[in-house]
């Protein structure tokens, strides 16, 4: 088991969107969170990550993921936003993203990562010149960090072209094979992703 959510409710002050939501996510499980617009998908994901107090209820993480540094090393959250510093270079941003999870990579590893996301040769460019798809790839490149056990993606396929949608699908499948679990939302149907579906109502 990676995480168990018991009796969750989403309430913005007076408006209760839903309640009584319980689910578990086990290892090597792929979960597609589905709901209509405005049903609180993003709030649920952010609430699970501890970023939204409007989500009430009990979220229990696996024992070895509860400590602060474990959580940082083992859980990857990629939301709508791209946490890049626009004045820093692509390489510096990459190092920073990894550093936040306590990981330091060698120059070769970093070069390989940039190659993988198609940003080779862009290492010294300020991040503000990146396109939306390139920034998203840069943020998603964190998923290669070996310590991760759980990915939580909010609309990860947005802004990616066909080739990188396939790239991400392959990443997800490989992660699943290695025992990792993924919770994601997506409006598009993604071919090749056999995911358990979780409905919000």
């Amino acid at each position: 088991m990676i995480l168990q959510a018991v009796n969750l409710a989403l309430r913005f002050d007076d408006w209760q969107l839903w309640r009584g939501l319980s689910f578990t996510i086990a290892q090597a499980e792929l979960v597609h969170l589905r709901a209509a617009n405005g049903r609180g998908k993003t709030s649920l994901l952010r609430g699970l990550m501890g970023l939204n107090h409007w989500l009430e209820g009990d979220v229990r993480w696996a024992v070895d993921m509860q400590a602060e540094e474990d959580f940082a090393a083992k859980v990857l959250f990629v939301g709508h936003k791209t946490p890049l510093a626009s004045e820093l270079s692509v390489l510096e941003n990459l190092q920073l993203l990894q550093g936040l999870r306590g990981q330091v990579s060698s120059q070769q590893q970093l070069a390989a990562t940039l190659q993988d996301i198609g940003l080779q040769g862009f290492a010294d460019m300020p991040a503000k010149w990146l396109s939306a798809g390139q920034s998203r790839r840069l943020v998603l490149s964190q998923c290669d960090l070996p310590s991760l056990r759980f990915w939580c993606f909010d609309e990860p396929f947005v802004a990616l072209d066909k080739m990188y949608v396939e790239w991400l699908v392959a990443k997800i499948q490989a992660f699943q094979l290695s025992g990792g679990a993924v919770l994601f939302t997506s409006h598009q149907e993604i071919p090749g992703l056999a995911a358990r579906e979780l409905y919000l109502d």
Binding site: G50, K81, P83
Partner: peptide
Amino acid sequence: QRTGYLDQVRMSYG
């Protein structure tokens, strides 16, 4: 806050 860096910080070292 806008770029989401604050979220990543909240999730890692506090």
